[in-house]
């Protein structure tokens, strides 16, 4: 069984984790086209190479991000989401829609 290095709990059997889908940026739901939204909701890149994925350590309910190579299955790096999400995200009211900070 593969070992996943958890940023909080250290190396653990991968059976202790839940896969949370590939990391993707949400387009601004207030302004994007239906096609862009559908692409975000339904499609996955499924790239051969280095990808960033959401993973959760089940016992501590801790979410983190992992850089994994989909060809070699090597986990290159795992890190706390705070590295990417550095500040509070707010959504504008639809009337004065502007770009969400994500």
């Amino acid at each position: 069984m593969k070992i996943m290095p958890c940023p909080l709990n250290g190396p653990r059997n991968i059976s202790e984790f839940t896969y949370g889908g590939e990391f993707k940026q949400m387009p601004d739901p207030a302004t994007c086209s239906d096609a862009d939204w559908a692409d975000y909701v339904f499609n996955s890149d499924n790239r051969a190479g280095l990808v960033v994925e959401w993973w959760m350590h089940n016992a501590s309910s801790y979410w983190f991000l992992a850089e994994r190579h989909t060809v070699t299955d090597e986990i290159v790096r795992t890190f706390d989401p705070k590295e990417i999400f550095t500040r509070r995200v707010d959504f504008a009211a639809p009337a004065q829609a502007r770009e969400a900070t994500v």
Binding site: S61, W63, P81, F85, R88, V102
Partner: peptide, 20 residues
């Protein structure tokens, strides 16, 4: 649902505590 709440707030960074 609890896990999804935590995942969303890992992105939104709202000042809130969620306890199951």
């Amino acid at each position: 649902i609890y896990q999804q709440m935590l995942k969303w707030n890992a992105q939104w960074r709202l000042n809130v505590d969620i306890t199951n």
